[in-house]
Structures are given as structure tokens and as C-alpha cells.
């Protein structure tokens, strides 16, 4: 379980997160929605310490990861992240992309890492691409590999930062389908997305962020049918 307590993040004078508090339960799928620049990415990046919070606490499974003594690398091993622009390693094959981190940081043997890697590739429908380089893949395929790469570390939580925003429209579905399947396996997921249909269908909860403030924290049904705030109503009107 992830627990955010009064989370603040400043970049110099710029206050990007202004005290976010919420919980994410095990197995819960949370959609994070909000206008551009509202702090969605920053929020996500705080959870795996790619950004160091200025103030407040983040608890993951009872451990305060903002504590000074925290092993940041260990936290990141247990928190998978998928980026908008994939960031696959271009000089490694698809399978090597999946096996690199488990072998390097977890000391998994090559044969075991490859076995797991191939299983994951099968799950995302890309077994045939195991020995290709990423440049030979389409955007949708790259993102599915990126998801498999994060899963190869066997994380407790998966963070997605606009995973379909850089994709051609016809490739969005294949990625969302993989994420949907993952949600059904009980993975805890936090997803920054502009795919309202997906959020509505798959998310257990919606967080609506605006100007670094958590404006709404509600069920998708509630959020999409009768948003409480003016700002959420405006936002939804523009999106739909």
C-alpha cells in the first residue's frame, strides 16, 4: 500500500505539488488526471524518488521512503515505471532490455532472467520480437516492451506516465489492453492518462489534480458523471 501524506514538491521557487494526501490500496488501479502542468508527472516521479519530495511523507508498505536512511535503489526495484517515450535501451535487444536490470541489480542468473523475460514477452504478445532491436518496433510494440521490462523486476507497484500519449491512435488500444490485463492480475497501478474511456473502465479511483492540488479523489463513476468541482467540470468538458 502507498500512503502519501501532505506531499510537497518545489522546483526552486515554483511550487509544483502543494500538499497531496491520499492512499493507494494493494491491487488498486488509480487514474491520475488533470491539465498539463498540474504536477501529475512530478507526483508519479516522487513515488519512485526520481524527484525528491520537498516536504511530506511517502509510505510504501509501511516504510517511509522519504526517510534519509532509505535505500533508494531498493525502493525503485519494487516500483516499476513506464514512461511516455518508452526509453528502451536502443543498443540492447528486446530480451536484453528485459534481462538487464534483474541480472545486474537482483543477481538473477542469465537463464532464469531470460526465461522470465520470454514469458513476459509472451504476455504482452511480443515473443516474436525477443531478438530484435527496439528500433525495429512500432511505438505500440515499444511501449509493450517497456511495460514488460518494468514487470521483469517483479515490482509491487507500476507507475505509468501518459503511456499512450506518444502513440499513433491505432496503437493506443494494444497498449491499453496490456494494461487492462495487468490490472486484472491484481497489480497495484497508478496511471497518468488522458484516455478518459480507459480511466472510466479500468480505474478503481480517479485523482484529479489541478495546480498542484488534489482537487478530487473519487470513484470513476462519481468523477465522470457528477464531478464536484468547477475545475473538474471545465476539464472534462474540454476533454470530451
Amino acid at each position: 500500500m502507498i500512503k502519501l501524506e501532505n506531499l510537497h514538491k518545489n522546483f526552486g521557487k515554483l511550487e509544483v505539488l502543494k500538499g497531496i494526501s491520499t492512499n493507494i490500496q494493494d491491487g488498486e488501479v488509480v487514474a491520475i488526471i488533470g491539465p498539463s502542468g498540474s504536477g501529475k508527472s512530478t507526483l508519479l516521479r516522487c513515488i519512485n524518488l526520481l524527484e525528491v519530495p520537498t516536504d511530506g511523507r511517502i509510505m510504501i508498505n509501511g516504510q517511509d521512503i522519504t526517510d534519509k536512511g532509505t535505500n533508494i535503489m531498493k525502493v525503485r526495484q519494487d516500483v516499476g515505471m513506464v514512461f511516455q517515450h518508452f526509453h528502451l535501451f536502443p543498443h540492447k535487444t528486446v530480451l536484453q532490455n528485459l534481462t538487464y536490470a534483474p541480472m545486474k541489480v537482483k543477481g538473477v542468473s542469465k537463464s532464469e532472467a531470460e526465461k522470465t523475460g520470454l514469458e513476459l514477452l509472451e504476455k504482452v504478445g511480443l515473443s516474436a520480437k525477443a531478438y530484435e532491436y527496439p528500433n525495429r518496433l512500432s511505438g505500440g510494440q515499444k511501449q509493450r516492451v517497456a511495460i514488460a521490462r518494468a514487470l521483469a523486476m517483479n515490482p509491487d507497484v507500476m507507475l505509468f506516465d501518459e503511456p499512450t500519449s506518444a502513440l499513433d491512435p491505432e496503437m493506443v488500444k494494444e497498449v491499453l489492453d496490456v494494461m487492462k490485463n495487468l490490472a486484472h492480475t491484481g497489480m497495484t497501478m497508478a496511471i497518468v492518462t488522458h484516455e478518459m474511456g480507459f480511466a472510466r473502465e479500468v480505474a478503481d479511483r480517479v485523482l484529479f489534480l489541478d495546480g498542484g492540488v488534489l482537487v478530487e479523489d473519487s470513484s470513476p463513476k462519481e468523477f465522470f458523471s457528477k464531478p464536484k468541482s468547477e475545475r473538474a467540470r471545465d476539464f472534462l468538458q474540454k476533454m470530451l
Binding site: 526520481l50 525503485r76 536490470a101 541489480v105
Partner: peptide, 22 residues
């Protein structure tokens, strides 16, 4: 691309191997 070191960091890969291998 800065995304490369971020991807490595996000996987829990420490600075030195990320530098050497990625």
C-alpha cells in the same frame, strides 16, 4: 537522451553500472 539514465534509475540500477552499461 536523459530518459536513458532515468529508465535505468527507475529500474533500480545504480549510477555506475547505468553509466557503464547504458
Amino acid at each position: 537522451d536523459k530518459g536513458q539514465s532515468e529508465a535505468a534509475m527507475a529500474l533500480g540500477v545504480p549510477y555506475r553500472p547505468a553509466m557503464m552499461d547504458i
